[in-house]
Design a protein around this nucleic acid. Structure first.
Length: 888
DNA sequence: TATAAGGTGTTAGTGA
DNA sequence: TCACTAACACCTT
């Protein structure tokens, strides 16, 4: 029945539009087609100018830089905060693409692949600085007319330097631009606008860096303005489309765009609330739009044809310089684009440029928030792991406390009122993800852009390693340093010498102290403030300082056993040490303090907290990227030095603490859990660390009690106010069935209630009874099927599980056979049953198929982690249970 | 175009 | 059948 209607609907919409569009189309095209005949023939879709040229004399925020292939020029997207409008500015400096070679010009001129290339422009001799020695070196610059020529030519020489940098980034480096910053446009050039900074704040910065080397001091003063400059609030709109789908579980293919767009919602920072709905004969209207509370203040417009709907959508969209989506890169934008073409729009009517896996918004900037929130560094450091699934619903729930509208059918079958409500909420959530907490997310994006010197479009679509790479490249260029080749960095340092504990890892990492099992009252946790970044700074670690042979002041790097792994050169400050130290000191000495100051307005405080968090992202990732094989400045000797020194520091400190009579129960990487320590002794260790290593050891946490399971990275800590922190325990893991999490939550209450060692025995007994209850409830099928489900994420497409077939994959295969499509990153919900496969997806299972024994096993391992702290063995519990059931 | 290593637990697959 | 390892997912620093 539904299928029949689908076909008629499709038919109707497509045909109707094709006849309509032609007339409208012609009207639009008239003036342009005249122009076309006068100029060179050009592809139609590149003729239209979506952005006006920026007028002179005004202040703009630089938001991105790109390359226009037709004009053969770099261009910038500039946001005018007064007009709330985006403008374009083409390069006026005649900047050209290039790369460098260490060959004499006359040798280069004998390479036909270079000089005969149609894009070859010329050769220049340039001077660069060797990052290792600081000596000047001469290189030949091969200048070309088109960035693609660099790709063609770079293989024609033995060593091509700086030949893998995207052209628009090269442009940013060479002009010393900082995206996210305000500039005044004068005579076609961008002049930085210095934010007002008061003297006392400047003094504070000088004081914070008084111990640093001269280079760091100068850089601190350069960085301060762009950390202080306010982030512009920009006019933006979020949108979301709903597409007709003939069956459940099928995601429509954007490139085919075979089904109608049935609704588009928009939510703007200027208060726009709108849904554009397609009138359809195959669904009901439902209640009136105005009677729906969730559509309060939302303007719903209905359209007879999809063509009109899209036309209206584009008309509204173009009022906004920034557009936001959640997964728009992979779905909404290409779908709209291809659907519009199908309906008869001409490419030049559409403000998008779609290439393979790349979508561009030509009339401004498109931020796909899915990509940004999926970014690992953003997730873990900026948002402290508050969301662990990456769909709109989970992210919005975690950050906004609001969910998507729940529907029990696919959108295709919703009545128009429900559809509008559902559709609008998605745009509202997407917009609010950039608005909440005083526009925290947007400010973070701007700060990241400034720190990485990257345009917003690239920034929001790449991971932290790209950000750090970009910052380092920019700084190399500013200093006139030659960016080294990866092979050179590897060749100039010694190989890694330590072996990792885990198979397949490159070098040895951190120390984890084996904890005892038990309940311990009054625990103080000492923690090194940013241990690895501090080590990098204090020991002057950098790719060009570790193992640099031409050095005069060498310092040995030893690990905890006294073995010498590498040496570091102290002749001049290492670039990584300078940048990391700079960020660390800014964060710890300035912004963390400012964020807590009582005498400044809360909004300002919140901003400083954003700055502090943005820095954390860069600081924490720096060590990691230099240890990552794919990173272009990969320096394993440096990364190995960091962890070796880390082990040396923590091991020496634990030893010192024990010598002072302190009881160190546990420690992981940079922390020490001390049992009931006297205050004086604490201070003594802290001072000793300061003097010995120039590192900050601080009291991080004070626990009323800690329940250690006896396993590493596995404990429960209770604060004096009853707040609980669970680390690593099975009950905490996302994939653990809900019924276990629920029961564990109750058990948690028992642990919290303890105030002294005397309570332990009493609670131990209660705990035993509680677990017995769970056991019985399970046996009697007292839980719902949903609660029993394991929730495990597919990390890759089903076909790629070749070596083994894990249970969640088995369940996913069953779903697939049933006609439900599954994709990487989908969370599969399955229960354990007594069939041959052993599992069934929740959707296909029944409560009486459940394999109770398997669930008892899961209960056992989960609760054992807590029972061990109480000194109770599972046998004790099961014996009590079996006696009871015997008597039953 | 993708930050590191250390750790726990479950299951599949393999070879004796 | 049993003991072991590899693969996988998720968490901690």
């Amino acid at each position: 029945m539904a299928k029949q209607q689908t076909l008629t609907l499709l038919d109707f919409v497509t045909k109707k539009n094709n006849s309509e569009k032609k007339e409208q189309h012609k009207v639009n095209e008239e003036p342009e087609s005249q122009q076309e005949t006068q100029n060179e023939p050009e592809p139609i879709h590149q003729r239209k100018e979506w952005l006006e040229e920026a007028p002179e004399g005004r202040v703009y925020y630089l938001l991105s830089v790109d390359y226009d292939g037709k004009k053969g020029k770099a261009f910038m997207k500039l946001y005018d905060p007064e007009a709330k409008k985006m403008y374009i500015l083409y390069d006026s400096t005649n900047h050209k693409p290039y790369f460098l070679v260490d060959l004499e010009p006359d040798k280069v001129s004998r390479i036909p692949k270079i000089v005969r290339d149609p894009s070859f422009d010329g050769l220049e001799t340039v001077q660069k600085i060797d990052p290792y020695s600081g000596n000047k070196i001469k290189l030949t610059k091969i200048v070309v007319k088109d960035p693609l020529a660099v790709r063609r030519m770079r293989n024609a020489v033995p060593k091509a330097y700086e030949a893998h940098i995207k052209y628009f980034n090269n442009y940013i480096y060479d002009l010393g631009l900082i995206p996210g910053m305000p500039y005044r446009l004068e005579k076609g050039k961008l002049i930085p606008v210095q934010p007002k900074i008061n003297e006392s704040e400047l003094e504070e910065v000088k004081k914070a860096f008084s111990d640093s080397d001269e280079l760091t001091k100068t850089m601190a003063l350069e960085w301060f303005p762009f950390l202080e400059a306010e982030a512009p609030s920009v006019k933006r709109v979020a949108f979301d489309i709903e597409v007709f789908t003939p069956s459940r579980g099928r995601v429509p293919d954007p490139e085919k765009a075979e089904y109608p767009i049935i609704s588009i919602s928009l939510a703007g920072s200027d208060g726009l609330k709108m849904v554009l709905v397609l009138k359809r004969s195959d669904v009901e209207q439902g209640n009136s739009f105005s009677s729906n509370n969730n559509l309060n203040g939302v303007k719903v417009e209905e359209f007879r044809t999809e063509y009109e709907l899209l036309k209206r959508f584009l008309e509204i969209l173009l009022n906004y310089p920034i557009i936001l989506t959640f997964n728009g890169d992979d779905f909404d934008v290409p779908y709209i684009y291809y659907r519009a073409l199908r309906l008869g729009f001409a490419p030049e009517e559409l403000p998008f440029d779609i290439k393979y896996r790349e979508t561009k918004y030509l009339a401004g900037i498109h931020v796909d928030l899915y990509k940004f929130f999926f970014n690992k560094a953003v997730r873990n450091y900026a948002f402290e792991g508050k969301y662990s699934e990456y769909n709109l619903d989970s992210v919005a729930q975690a950050l906004l406390g609001v969910s998507k509208i729940k529907i029990d059918n696919i959108v295709t079958f919703l009545n128009l009122e429900k559809l509008a409500e559902y559709n609008y909420r998605d745009s509202e959530l997407t917009l609010n993800l950039t608005m909440f907490d005083n526009e925290l997310t947007w400010k973070l994006i701007i700060l990241f852009a400034r720190m990485s010197r990257m345009g917003i479009e690239e920034l929001t679509r790449t991971e932290i390693s790209t950000w750090i790479k970009n910052l380092y490249y920019w700084e190399h260029r500013r200093r006139g340093w030659l960016i080294p080749l990866k092979e050179e960095i590897l060749a100039r340092a010694a190989e890694t010498k330590s072996s990792a504990i885990i198979k397949g890892k490159g070098y040895k990492g951190a120390v984890v102290i084996d904890p005892p099992a038990g309940i311990f009252f009054n625990i103080i946790v000492l923690d090194f403030a940013s241990l690895y970044p501090s080590i990098i700074r204090n020991w002057n670690l950098s790719y060009e300082t570790v193992d640099y042979e031409g050095c005069t002041k060498k310092e040995m790097i030893k690990d905890e056993s006294g073995e010498v792994l590498h040496f570091v050169c102290r002749d001049k400050p290492g670039i990584t040490a300078v940048i990391t130290g700079l960020l660390r000191d800014f964060r710890v000495k300035i912004y963390k303090k400012k964020a807590k100051k009582s005498d400044i307005p809360p909004e300002q405080k919140a901003y400083y907290d954003v700055v502090q968090r943005a820095m954390k992202v860069f600081i924490n990732a720096t060590y990691g990227v230099f240890g990552a094989e794919n990173f272009p400045l990969y320096a394993p000797a440096m990364a190995e030095s960091v962890t070796a020194l880390g082990r040396y520091v923590i091991t020496s400190t634990v030893k010192k603490a024990r010598e002072l009579g302190l009881t160190v129960l546990y420690g992981d990487t940079d922390s020490m859990f001390l049992y009931n320590p006297p205050k004086e002794k604490l201070e003594e260790v802290i001072n000793w660390v300061k003097q010995t290593f120039r590192l900050d050891l601080e009291v991080d946490k004070v626990y009323k009690l800690v329940a250690f399971s006896g396993l590493k990275k596995n404990y429960m800590g209770v604060y004096p106010d009853g707040k609980v922190e669970i680390k690593g325990m099975l009950a905490k893991k996302r994939n653990t069935p809900e019924f276990i999490k629920k029961e564990f939550e109750e058990v948690k209450g028992l642990v919290i209630s303890m105030n002294s060692p005397d309570d332990v025995v009493k609670i131990k007994e209660k705990l035993t009874y509680k677990i017995k209850d769970i056991y019985n409830k399970l046996k009697n099928k007292g839980y719902y099927l949903d609660e029993l489900a394991f929730k495990i994420m597919l990390s890759k497409p089903l076909e790629e599980y070749k070596k083994t077939t894990p249970q969640h994959v088995k369940a996913a295969l069953q779903l697939q056979a049933y006609g439900i499509h599954v994709l990487p990153r989908d969370v599969i919900m399955y229960v354990k049953v007594k069939t041959k496969d052993g599992v069934k997806p929740v959707q296909l299972a029944k409560l009486n198929e459940i394999d109770t024994e398997k669930y008892i096993e899961t209960v056992r391992t989960t609760f054992e982690q807590l029972l061990k702290a109480f000194g109770v063995s599972w046998d004790e519990i099961s014996s009590v249970i079996s006696i009871n059931s015997f008597f039953k």
